[in-house]
Each structure stands twice: as C-alpha cells, then as structure tokens.
Design a protein around this nucleic acid. Structure first.
Length: 565
RNA sequence: GGGCUCGUAGCUCAGAAAGGUAGAGCAGCGGGCUUUUAACCCGUCGGUCGCGGGUUCAAAUCCCGUCGAGCCCGCCA
C-alpha cells in the first residue's frame, strides 16, 4: 500500500488543490484531504472491488444548500476512491414515493387533500413539471450538472413501480415480527400491533399513510424474489383493496433504506447526523440489512448540518468587521423560511464556490453559511486560490471589482458594462463570444449578490442628477474649488492629449495634486468626489471609479457640483 | 433521563487516522512614489488548542471528568 501521497488529492478546478506547498519540507506527515482519509478507511475496512456511493433526498420542498452537502461529500469520496484506483459510482435516489407529510406553508389550501399521497402522484403546485416530486427534484438535478457532479439518478416511485422492490417486500412481510423486534430493540420504539413494514397505496383516495394491512398472499416463488403476491388492506377513507408489490405501496422508511442498499448494491453512504445517532435510522437500517436482507450495511459517513447565519448590521454604516452585528444562526428549514434553495444561491454565486465551501470543511463539523460579507470573503479566497472565477478576461477581473463595475454600469446591460470594463483598462475583443458570455455571467452573479446579500456600505449608485443628494449642498467652498479644478484639468488634458484618458493611478494622483495645490486635506477632496458622484462621502477606490467613468460626464458633473446646482 | 458529534488566533478553517516545540487565509498593524477610503504586493502582530485531571520522556492529538454549542432516542421520513 505504498502509494505516493498527495497534498489534497483533487483536481485544481474544484478548488481544493490550491493549498500551498513549501510547508511540507520537514513534516513527516502530509496533509490529506478528508475525502482521501475516508477513502482509505473504506478500502481498509471493506473488501469490495467496486463501490457504490449513495445519497438522496425526499423532494418535498426546495432542495437547499444544506442538502447539497450530502451529495458533495459523496462526490468527493467517490473521486477519492477513484484516485486510489478503486472503481466507484455515485448514485442519487430521489424519494419520490414518500408521502406528503403535511401541507407546508408554501402550498395552497387545496393541497390539504394531497397530504398522505406519494409525492410522485401529486400535481406540481406550480404546474410546470409532471409532478410535485419532479418540481423540486429536477431543478436540483440540473444544479448538480452545473456543479460538475456526475451522478446516476434513481427515482423511488419508478423503482417501486418497476418491481425492483418485490423480493424485499416479500421478505419484509414474511419477517414482519423480526423487523418489529429489531426496530423496537434499536430505537426503543414500540410498534402498534397492526404495524406492517409495507404501506399499501389506497386505490380509492391515493393515500399511502392511511392504510392498514389486513393480510397478504404470496404466491410460492421459485427461488429468491421470483414470487408475486398481493397485499390486502383497508383505508381510513373506507376503501378496502388489494395492492400489488410493484408500485402498490412502499416499505416503511427504515426498512426501505436497508432494502435499497441491497437493491442498488450500496457500499458507502453519507447522511445527516440525525440518522447517525444511536437508535437512529442507520442503527436499525444496519441491523435490518444484515439480519433480514443478508447484506452488509454501507460504510457510513455522518455529517453535520449547514446552518444559516444571518447577520444584520446595527445602526447602519459601520465598518466591515468593526460594527456590532447581530447574529442569528438557524438550522435551515423550509417550513420556517430559513433555507436558501440551491437554485436561488446559484443565481448569486457560481457552483464551484459552493463546492469549495463544503469541501474545505470536514464532514463532522458544522458549517455556518452567511451569504453576506463572509460569502464575499469566501469568493475572494477562492479566486486567489484558483486564479479566478470564469475564463479569460472575466477570470482576470476579480469578483470584487465586478461589484464596482456593475454598479457603475447601472446593471448588466452588456454594451454599457463593456464600455465601463474597457475604460477601467481591460481590452475586451469585440467578437469573442465566449469571453463576453463569461463576463455577462460573472456580472450577473455580482449584481444578484449586491441585490440580495450585500451590506449597504458596499452598495452605491451613480447619481443621475445632483438634486438627488442633499449632501451636495453641504460641500464646502474648498471642496467646490477642488471639483472645479479637477474639471478644468479634464478639459485641459482632454484637449491637449487628443482624447487621452487618465488611468486609475493617474486619477488617484490627480486628487492629491489638487489637494496640494489648494492646500486642503486630500480626504476633503475624496469626499467631494464621492458626494458629487454617489451622493455619499465614501465609495470604492476613487481612482478606479473615476477611470471607469466617461470623461465628459465627469467634467460636467464636477462643474455642476462646484456650482452647487 | 440516556446517547452522539463538535469546541484550535478577532473571523473562517487546517492540523487529530500512525502523540514529538501550534498552521493558512481574512481582518488588524506597518510599508510599497510626498499622498487615509472598497482589486494588488511585501512585512508584521496575534492562540495557556473550552476547562480540570490522568497516561507518557513528550498530549491540540490517547483516557476520564466537566462546561458550552448542536443533534438523536418520543411523532415520522
């Protein structure tokens, strides 16, 4: 087992490869990414030559970044296994056959009648997909594509309807008493006398949670899993009926989980720590797998939840870290509205950031996700580590600078944005469609982040007219003189230099030049410039701001502000 | 009540699987052309590793206890 060790074995693209070198000279141990350590564990404790890493979720609401952790962990471990030369697949099971447990706040009142029906059999509340389950599942699957995670997707309702579960359902029915005992022993849960591991789907009302099994007949099958069978039930709605083993109902959760391991050949499974506690579902699933299904339970990878941290600055414009922030840390919960759907966060940050966020923290530690400044810091860090988000020019312009650019351009109108980018010193070729697309994409992220999560001190808006700001009236005489002088300089240099533009540095120097000439504090001039342009006394680096604006506009604006109009 | 996981610099996290004098990034501070403000570069400050015991020549790392945070066992996936 003498494989060369790597530092954080992962592709540079995914963002974890950037841990710097130079530290490892004297250390005998090499830092290893947690996914590598886990992969080694798996190989050391398991004999399988092919691994199936399974993850999944019940698509009963928006799938949020908390849920994303599971699949990203699965992806990381699968990749680590592959790097160690073991064959491994990643699969994702949508629990589309689970019943709707209650009418969530985001559902209309008429959905009350769907409570208890399998998600795959309920209409899409927004009418855009084939079912309730698909409505939440398919956008998530698309997100996985954006994340570059290769995964095989299974849908529970399809698996049931196709008869994949038949043998396991038979076995469960036959060993009902053993199952009840195991569940009792592992969780302390006392099951009602009429409990059945199989919940039939009522043919009359369509519910799966209101039926009681009254009997069953299993045709003698030749060999394992060959026999058909039927289950008799009565429902709270008054109906009595017969259910088939292929889609006529589903196994109880903890039994279902174990059955699925066997059906799909699962060898590794990450899951939230709530399942991991003793007496939790993994405990019973493990016993059920081993005692009922003769299948070795997968290697468990319990992980902590992602908590949402919302920080609000008290008392307005305080500095970044200095201000007193009120912090609120909450678990993500769809029903309480404290979650951020994956599809929403993907409008704000590129997927690789989410991957980066999750991969850098070991699974057993919780992650506090704060979409405001900390998210921006994370993006900065990622860009430093990997050479930037996007390709070409877009990658060379830091995300932070994009925040200024899109605000100067007042949006993501491509023409205006490109003009601003060019003025601030980047050559953007006219015809490079790919470059332009990357720029637009990054601009879109910047804009959305500003709108949704940026603190006020990072936002600014170019005044369309000076009358929009009260502060303009309060400019001192000295400040007015300074602005006028800048305007004169612009006129002068523009004419002499034949349209020559000042660079950011030159602009910066110009401000000091003017301050010296008029013998006033540079800070006064800075404030005057910001007020004349933004209507507030501070802003992004003045040199860059000025350089990215149209010269003629600047001259007129400064003259007007100097005149106090 | 029983149990599980986590608690390392102001912040976000490595380091724990094989005990060997505490690491990174951000923030802070100081510079980078005489020149505070929101892209960059360099330097620098910063931790009794929650606390208390124990094992050991040696403990962030192993063991016991304790405090704090979150979670599970009860409904149900």
């Amino acid at each position: 087992m003498e494989k060369p060790q790597r530092i954080l074995g992962s592709s540079p693209v995914t963002g974890c490869g950037g841990r710097d070198r130079g530290v490892d000279d004297h250390s005998s141990r090499v830092e290893m990414h947690w996914s590598q350590a886990i992969a080694r564990e798996i190989i050391a404790h398991r004999g399988e030559e092919k691994h199936v890493v399974a993850t999944g979720i019940t698509p009963s609401g928006d799938i949020h970044i908390g849920n994303l952790r599971e699949i990203i962990i699965g992806d990381a471990v699968r990749n680590a296994l592959c790097e160690l030369g073991v064959e491994a697949r990643l699969i994702y099971v949508g629990d589309t056959f689970d019943p709707l447990r209650r009418r969530y706040p985001f559902l209309p009142p008429e959905y009350e009648e769907h409570v208890g029906k399998p998600l795959s059999e309920i209409p899409d509340p927004e009418g855009c997909h084939s079912s309730y389950a698909e409505h939440f599942l398919s956008p998530f699957i698309e997100s996985l594509d954006e994340l570059g995670i290769e995964v095989e997707v299974f849908r529970a309702d399809v698996m049931y309807k196709s008869g994949w579960y038949e043998a396991e359902i038979r076995e469960a029915l036959l060993r009902r008493d053993d199952l009840a005992r195991i569940l009792h022993e592992s969780s302390g849960r006392r099951l009602p006398p009429h409990w059945s591991p199989f919940a039939p789907l009522c043919s009359a009302c369509g519910r799966i949670s209101t039926t009681t099994v009254t009997g069953y007949k299993l045709d003698g099958g030749e060999g394992e899993g060959k026999g058909k069978g039927e289950v008799y039930y009565r429902c709270e709605c008054g109906n009595r009926g017969t259910a088939s083993l292929s889609g006529g109902g589903k196994l109880a959760w903890r039994v279902d989980w174990a059955a699925r391991w066997k059906i799909l050949g699962v060898t590794v499974e990450p899951f939230g720590k709530d399942h991991a506690a003793p007496g939790g579902s993994f405990d019973s699933g493990k016993r059920i797998a081993e005692e009922i299904y003769n299948f070795r339970a997968p290697y468990p990878i319990p992980f902590e939840h992602i908590l949402l941290r919302l920080s609000e600055v008290e008392g307005g414009d305080t500095g970044d870290e200095g201000g007193k922030r009120r912090r609120r840390v909450t678990a993500m919960s769809s029903s309480r509205g404290t979650n951020i759907p994956v599809r929403e966060i993907l409008e704000v940050v590129p997927p690789e950031i989410l991957k980066y966020l999750i991969r850098r923290v070991r699974p057993e530690r919780h992650i506090e996700f704060d979409p405001s400044m900390p998210l921006l810091h994370l993006i900065d860090e990622y860009e430093r580590d990997t050479g930037g988000i996007g390709t070409g020019i877009a990658a060379r312009i830091p995300f932070r600078h994009f925040l200024t650019l899109v605000q100067v351009a007042r949006g993501d109108d491509t023409r205006e944005l490109l003009a601003v980018i060019r003025r601030s010193g980047y050559e953007v070729p006219e015809d490079a469609e790919e470059e332009l697309a990357a720029i637009r994409r990054k601009a879109r992220y910047a804009l959305n982040w500003l709108r949704r999560y940026a603190p006020d001190e990072l936002k600014f808006e170019l005044l369309r007219s000076l009358s929009e700001s009260e502060l303009v009236k309060e400019l001192s005489d000295a400040q007015r003189r300074a602005l006028l002088m800048i305007a004169h300089h612009i006129r002068h240099e523009h004419e002499l230099g034949g349209g020559k533009r000042l660079s950011a540095t030159e602009w910066h120097n110009k401000i000091y030049e003017v301050a010296n000439a008029l013998d006033i504090e540079p800070g006064e001039v800075f404030r005057a410039v910001y007020i004349a342009l933004l209507g507030k006394p501070s802003g992004p680096r003045a040199g860059w701001l000025l350089a990215s604006l149209d010269t003629e506009f600047l001259r007129e604006r400064f003259e007007a502000a100097a005149a106090g109009k």
